[in-house]
Design a protein around this nucleic acid. Structure first.
Length: 893
RNA sequence: GGGAGCUUAGCUCAGUUGGUUUAGAGCAUCUGCCUUACAAGCAGAGGGUCACAGGUUCGAGCCCUGUAGCUCCCACCA
């Protein structure tokens, strides 16, 4: 068969992926083997593959393929997350394009559009994972809104409610006026913005003070639009400027409400004017102050962030106030500032860098708003499940990198209640039912809820109750993921759940350690009384090569499918893995994909070379000992064993990037650059059958070692090397054999000598084609047994002989403790040679001085371990010996 | 404001309980090669006061203290 010039990934990727699927290699069912389970962090159902997924899933695929090749029952569960706010936002946008406004639809109508959308676009990302080569058990694909999953979520809500861990309460929440929903603290991102600090004067209510020249008190605020909701002014009790004012009344501009000046240590005297306006309905801290000082909260903004006078009506507001109704908060800010300026109470405005919270999903500026929401009492939850913290601290669940234990600990020790209701339609609807008076019951169905109502109010009819309009936070379903993908919540104790749970390793981003990882651990202990996974591998953030975050705005997110198309899936995986050190951010650079592509070609060409030998294999023994490459075989076998052991160690520590690096070097440097050159027969010469056979076996083993990282090219080469029935994908790794260190160090010597002589050849500008004659002066000539032939071939020497004294008219090179005399037809440049030797001498002398200094130090000789002292002594004698040899060579010049 | 971590070659990173030559790798750079598997390649080379300043020790890239810079997390002073 004719092999193409370069490796062509496109031609073979689909073929092998389909073959693996046909053979059901990715499918798992419980059996006697030990399970190795990974549940995918479910991507958003409407998501498309980006760099983060690619990194994340490449790692998971590598781990699961290792497990599959190491005798484990490997199960990697795919699936998607309904992602309530993200998906709903997309569906709303899609409807808007079609001219449909969400509010014109009923809930059911909206949901049918959403499902339609989900069926059409949902799961695209799963198809994309196939392109990447991910070996997921597709029969197990789960979705967080599947029927059973939905029921499991509802079941957990009811259960937690009945355990008293869920409560409903009016609380200050982060309100997203665009998404019109509450957000948890974790979904709010603070951004620095240019704002203005408005200094507004509130006049005293009694005329006396104004007569005495002090007209009022000035506060500094960034949000004048909330002034109509002010219920107090607060100062620090120790602030001498204001102590006499405390208890006095001032008048809120425009609305003319009388409010009190109160004192609280919360206020910082040296910020702004030292006086704070208190608006409990629109600020978290003000709300806290309001509660403490028993102040009313007056809400002046509606759910879309527009001014509303509703709660002001009893104050009989002026027309001016009524004119604000319906005005957006940002327009209102300018308007009110202008109106206050018009009545002379805006003292000044200054520029100010302010931190404002924004919605992670919609980007809208968050309003703090009082509203009725459902919460989980997290402190109570943690009291029930202290293992959630302990298991991580004592490494029962091992975090990689371990530094994240601190972050985790801090969060759990300062945990706040979790707001789990969202004012959306796409998601699990909260199983709470209300009667007309606002009484509620929690139950799975309307009928069950009605039963509960009836026991208290026999006159109530079932038509009179209605379900809570809100849905649950998406994370309230994803925290059950490792359990419910095996139906562990909807059907507790089933055989699959018992077998696969706890899962083995979780691979996810550091950014969702609280959102998801922590909560899965908590849910795991609450519902299974077991940890959900043994190890958590946190990937870093994907950045571009300048270190910037990948973002749509910057346009620096590469088109992944385009990259796979251009470089191939293996090269893409290689490029990502080679540049993502464990626990660090990935600095993505397309050149690493080129490196991956080049690596493919390198292997492809090695295959071509071996294939060329196929037709001229000579029986073992027919060839001379010199040409059969015995040492090369011994060495590579041991080198392979050495690397296998290192790779295995690195894999266990999750240092996949490093493992890949040493495999890369093993293939490229050791196998291609050294081994193949050593065993390669001359032009059109036959190859010894034993060498050929061994070479094929080595190549196979290399492919196996690399397979978890680059599955396609390795499978292809595996099959091209020999006709065979099995597949690399499921070929089991053999036990690791320890390497013979003597053989390894002999190879190091050989390589050093080859490199050293090539260096001389280069410097003396001896052309590659020109042969040399090599003389070696060595104390221990036996060292060169078995490697002379290779040496001669690699440095293009016609002969190698030993000598007891310098050979005149040659170039001398000192390598290790031996001298090499290179005889050539060409005139020599002794100057160059002298420079080199002097440089070497200088280095050795410097080194000797440092060693002698150490050995001359009595304390060192007394205190250091004997073997360390012995080592230093050896270093000294070695250095002295080398210096002698170099000096001799110099003298001979 | 609180906390965690980082700083080693031009870039990205290794460097295992302090001692294996005066610190390693990949990429990039430079020199020479179209050598019959591979120029997307081959051969070779150069390049680092291990952020800075102290300290502990016979001995520090590694341990301690301080300083500077960077990153992330938490909090959010209106």
């Amino acid at each position: 068969m004719e092999l193409t010039k370069n490796f062509e990934p496109k031609a073979i990727e689909n073929k092998w992926y389909q073959h693996w699927l046909d053979k059901k290699y990715f499918n798992s069912t419980p059996d006697a083997r030990e399970p190795y389970t990974i549940v995918i962090p479910p991507p958003n159902v409407t998501g498309v593959l980006h760099m983060g997924h690619c990194l994340n899933n490449s790692i998971q695929d590598i781990l699961i393929r290792y497990a599959r090749m190491n005798g484990k029952n490997a199960c990697w569960v795919p699936g998607t997350d309904h992602a309530s706010i993200a998906t709903e936002t997309k569906v709303v946008g899609m409807l808007r394009e079609r001219g449909i406004i969400k509010s014109s639809l009923t809930r059911d109508e909206f949901l049918s559009y959403a499902w339609e959308w989900k069926e059409k676009y949902g799961g695209i990302i799963l198809q994309q994972l196939k392109k990447l080569g991910c070996s997921l058990d597709w029969d197990r694909t789960s979705f967080t809104m599947d029927d059973d999953y939905y029921k499991a979520v509802i079941k957990v809500f009811i259960d937690l409610y009945e355990k008293g861990l869920i409560y409903r309460g009016k609380r200050m929440v982060n309100w997203d006026p665009d998404g019109q929903t509450a957000l948890s603290d974790e979904e709010v991102i603070f951004k620095e913005v240019d704002a203005k600090l408005y200094h507004v004067t509130y006049k005293f209510a009694d005329a006396q003070n104004s007569a005495s020249g002090v007209g009022g008190i000035t506060v500094a605020t960034t949000r004048p639009e909330t002034i109509l909701g002010d219920v107090a002014i607060c100062v620090n009790p120790t602030d001498e400027r204001y102590t006499s004012f405390v208890g006095k009344e001032v008048i809120v501009p425009i609305i003319n409400r009388k409010i009190k000046i109160i004192a609280d240590e919360y206020v910082t005297a040296d910020f702004g004017t030292g006086a704070l306006k208190v608006t409990p309905a629109h600020d978290k801290n003000d709300n806290m102050l309001g509660a403490k000082h028993h102040l009313k909260a007056i809400d002046t903004l509606d759910i879309t962030g527009k001014f509303t006078a509703g709660e002001l009506m009893e104050e009989n507001p002026s027309q001016q106030v009524l004119d604000y109704v319906g005005m957006d908060r940002f327009a209102l800010r300018k308007k009110i500032a202008a109106d206050i300026a018009a009545i002379g109470q805006l003292e000044k405005t200054e520029d100010y860098k302010s931190q404002v919270g924004t919605s992670e999903r919609t980007g809208a500026v968050i309003e703090n708003k009082l509203s009725l929401q459902w919460f989980i009492d997290m402190n109570k939850f943690m009291e029930r499940n202290p293992e959630a913290l302990q298991s991580v601290l004592n490494d029962e669940i091992t975090f990689h990198p371990s530094k994240l234990k601190n972050t985790y600990k801090y969060w759990l020790e300062n945990i706040k209640d979790w707001c789990i209701s969202r004012q959306l339609w796409w998601g699990q609807q909260i199983p709470a039912w209300y009667d007309a008076d606002g009484n509620y019951e929690v139950a799975a169905t309307k009928e069950e809820a009605f039963e509960k109502f009836k026991s208290k109010n026999s006159k109530l009819k079932i038509e009179d109750i209605s379900q809570d309009e809100d849905v649950l936070d998406t994370w309230f379903s994803s925290w059950l993921w490792p359990m419910e993908v095996f139906k562990g919540v909807s059907n507790p104790g089933n055989a699959e759940a018992n077998y696969y749970y706890p899962s083995t390793t979780l691979v996810t981003g550091q950014d969702i350690i609280f959102f998801w990882v922590a909560r899965m651990i908590m849910a795991g202990y609450e519902y299974e009384d077991k940890k959900p996974f043994n190890d958590v591998y946190f990937t870093g953030m994907v950045r571009d090569k300048q270190g910037r975050k990948m973002s749509k705005q910057l346009g620096n997110s590469p088109d992944l499918l385009g990259l796979i198309d251009q470089y191939g899936a293996d090269a893409t995986r290689f490029g990502i893995m080679i540049s993502s050190p464990a626990g660090n951010d990935l600095l993505f650079d397309e050149s690493s994909l080129e490196q991956g592509r080049n690596f493919n070609n390198k292997m492809w060409n090695a295959l071509k070379l071996i294939k060329m030998w196929e037709g001229r294999i000579a029986d073992s023994g027919q060839l001379t000992v010199d040409s059969n490459g015995g040492f090369a075989l011994d060495w590579f076998e041991n080198r392979l064993n050495e690397v296998k052991a290192s790779v295995d160690g690195l894999r266990k520590e999750f240092k996949l990037s490093e493992a890949l690096k040493i495999i890369y070097s093993l293939v490229w440097d050791d196998f291609c650059s050294w081994y193949l050159e050593w065993v390669k027969p001359g032009f059109e010469q036959p190859i010894d059958s034993a060498v050929y056979k061994k070479t094929v076996q080595f190549f196979e083993q290399l492919m196996q070692l690399l397979h978890p990282y680059m599955p396609f090219v390795t499978e292809e080469i595996y099959h091209l090397l020999e006709e065979r029935k099995d597949d690399l994908c499921v070929k089991q790794f053999e036990n690791i054999v320890p390497a013979d260190t003597q053989i390894l160090s002999k190879a190091v010597l050989l390589k050093d000598v080859i490199t050293g002589i090539r260096d001389v050849r280069n410097k003396q500008q001896i052309k590659p084609k020109d042969a040399i004659v090599l003389h070696i002066q060595s104390e221990d000539e036996n060292v060169y047994d078995g490697i002379k032939t290779i040496l001669a071939k690699q440095v293009n020497a016609t002969s190698i002989s030993f000598t007891k004294e310098p050979v005149p008219g040659t170039i001398t090179s000192v390598i290790g403790k031996d001298k090499f005399f290179i005889e050539t037809e060409q005139p020599l440049d002794t100057g160059l040679q002298k420079d080199d030797l002097l440089k070497e001498l200088h280095h050795l002398q410097g080194f000797l001085i440092s060693v002698e200094k150490k050995l001359g130090n009595e304390k060192f000789v007394q205190n250091a371990k004997p073997e360390v002292v012995a080592l230093e002594q050896k270093k000294r004698s070695d250095a002295q010996e080398k210096i002698r040899i170099v000096e001799e060579s110099l003298a001979a010049l």
